[in-house]
Design a protein around this nucleic acid. Structure first.
Length: 550
RNA sequence: GGGCCGAUAGCUCAGCUGGUAGAGCACCGCCCUUUUAAGGCGGGUGUCGCGGGUUCGAAUCCCGCUCGGCUCACCA
């Protein structure tokens, strides 16, 4: 939303003019605007507070008109509408942490003076005095304002504030009769007007759509939402410390790529005008990171966005954050060790325990995690005997029955389908699914002694795939053959294939040392640790269709 | 993209087989100087998501659309 046209310009509120009468009537009706809605019949609202001029030409509600009018009266009373700064002595959290535990007797002899600022979240007005709470997002504190303390003029001006307004309060700390830490207000400073009513104090903001579209409102009303994003930030900095401490370097590889490789997914297409070429937003950084390992950067990691042009649901957002890391002279067994260290370390350091709830289950992150071969997991989850998986036509037929729209179904793909349908959701406790079929892993080495299997694992927790790692395929000829096989699959109508990247093959021809690589989906990791069932709860601004009225 | 469900006051929600919309909070007026979901008295502030249709009459029934949720497909 652009700046509201009815807002006073900066000069209007400048200090030199602050004692003058506000020179403009507010709000201004644009005379040529025939859509200006009729004035609602409300005798309590002054006529000049009506006829809104919001750029969107959306009619203001009664409460918005009241707020706009109070704001105008504040400015007319000489209040700077946009002050530059306020010197706080404490954050709200500072005060609560330091003094909430003190008794009235401890506070009284030497009252602590404070200047504290926040958003007014509730008001209890009692004639010549009032209590209200202010919040700065991390904590809230009560303020007691008395007419005989601040003076008649200031008290009347305070009454022009609404729930949602931001102000600074100066005064001394005390405890009320009921024992609540409070600030006895000597004076206050207006800092920002909230021109819209806030959601209800008791139920708050529930509407999932509004919570995502106007995340700021969600954050104002639902403090636990901010906790999720603080946790997300802590997860990412923990991971950076982890890798930095092990001699990894953090790198950034292209977001815009001529060939969208490193995974099998549909990319977004964009266009470069000067080069007159289409480019793809990356679906994975993998092939670039391994080029760096070829170049001698033996330990690299990247935490960044990937973009996949696929469906949206509670586990998928078109842009999502991925950690990928590669270490030379390692294999996937080493990556399994590291994965355990990462998950258990995060849990221990950020949650302070090795168990936590997820939905109606308790997830227990204790080393070592269970390790199950892909085929054994299939047998376990599907109820079929292990030998049944040697009967290839039978397995393909079974998979075709489970997912009739997926053609052609190869043996490897059939195993994948059965896994997704029968096994995945049963894997609640952390489980490494080891050695999936090679043909769905075109960038991984074959498992030692098992040519049909990939030297790869996926970590499943709470039915979600949290990590995916393998011993990287380093043989350029083999890699080229795998790419060509993918292209052949594509010609057969399989749209889940990896594109040929001959430049990457050339990099391999210079020699990629044995390398272990892994990807961890940050969004899902945060979902897990914060007990959120939807990816939209851990992404500040998830993709939504735009709305005209927003 | 398919199926199911939803959209009513600023917010959270009621509203039956069709008869011109209600509650709590918020808001407005009055009273109230230690309240805390403050309290008392008075006031409903609405394009019932949008557009058609049926009907004497539609929030309600039918059709189309928009946005969202769940789910299936796709994907991580």
């Amino acid at each position: 939303m652009s700046t509201a046209s009815w807002m006073p310009s900066a000069s209007v509120g400048s200090p030199s003019q602050k004692s003058q009468t506000y020179p403009r009537t507010i709000p201004m009706t644009e005379p040529e605007n025939p859509k200006t809605p009729p004035v609602p019949p409300n005798p309590s609202v002054k006529p000049e507070a009506e006829s809104p001029g919001r750029p969107s030409e959306v009619q203001k509600s009664e409460q918005e008109l009241v707020r706009a009018d109070k704001y105008r009266r504040l400015i007319e009373a000489g209040v700077d509408p946009f002050p530059h700064k306020v010197e706080r002595t404490h954050s709200v959290l500072d005060l609560v942490d330091a003094y909430a535990g003190k008794t009235a007797e401890e506070l009284e002899p030497a009252p602590v003076r404070t200047v504290v600022a926040g958003r007014m979240m509730s008001v209890r007005l009692m004639g010549k005095a009032a209590f209200f709470h202010i919040s700065d997002g991390r904590a809230r504190i009560q303020v007691y304002i008395r007419k005989d303390k601040v003076g008649d003029e200031a008290y009347e001006r305070w009454k022009l504030l609404d729930i949602g307004d931001i102000l600074a309060v100066e005064g001394a700390l005390f405890k009320t009769r009921t024992g609540e830490l409070s600030v006895l207000c000597d004076s206050f400073t207006f800092l920002a007007k909230c021109l819209h009513p806030l959601p209800e104090k008791w139920h708050g903001l529930q509407d999932v759509e509004i919570r995502s579209r106007r995340r700021y409102l969600d954050l104002i009303m639902n403090p636990e939402v901010a906790d999720v994003f603080r946790l997300r930030s802590a997860v990412i900095s923990w991971l950076r410390r982890f890798f930095d401490g092990r001699g990894y370097i953090e790198v950034e590889t292209p977001m815009m790529q001529a060939i969208a490789g490193g995974a099998m997914a549909r990319p977004f297409v964009t266009h470069h005008n000067a080069l007159n070429m289409d480019l793809f937003l990356r679906i994975a950084p993998e092939l670039f990171l391994k080029r760096l390992v070829v170049g001698g950067l033996e330990k690299v990691y990247e935490i960044n966005r990937n973009f996949r042009n696929e469906g949206i649901d509670s586990e998928h957002n078109p842009e999502f954050t991925m950690l990928e890391f590669y270490e030379a002279y390692r294999n996937y067994d080493d990556m399994m060790e590291m994965t355990e260290e990462i998950f258990c370390g995060l849990c221990r350091d950020l949650l302070g325990k090795d168990e936590f709830p997820y939905g109606d289950r308790v997830i227990s992150l204790k080393r070592p995690f269970r390790r199950v071969k892909f085929r054994e997991a299939l047998a376990e989850g599907s109820g079929l005997p292990s030998e049944a998986f040697d009967d290839r036509p039978r397995i393909i037929k079974l998979a075709e029955g489970l997912a009739p729209e997926k053609k052609p179904v190869t043996y490897g793909k059939a195993l994948d389908i059965i896994f997704d349908k029968h096994v995945k959701e049963k894997l609640v406790q952390p489980t490494f699914i080891v050695n999936p079929p090679k043909e769905v892993s075109p960038l991984a080495k074959s498992a030692l002694g098992e040519p049909a299997e990939a030297a790869r694992f996926e970590l499943m927790v709470a039915g979600m795939e949290l990590a995916n790692a393998f011993s990287e395929l380093t043989d350029p000829a083999e890699q080229k053959a795998r790419f060509e096989h993918q292209a052949e699959e594509k010609r057969k109508g399989n749209d889940e294939t990896h594109p040929i990247d001959l430049d990457y093959v050339q990099a391999l021809e210079y020699g990629l040392p044995p390398t272990g690589g892994e990807g961890i989906g940050i969004d899902r990791l945060v979902m897990l640790l914060s007990n959120r069932r939807s990816i939209r709860e851990v992404i500040l601004f998830p993709l939504l269709r735009p709305r005209e009225d927003q």
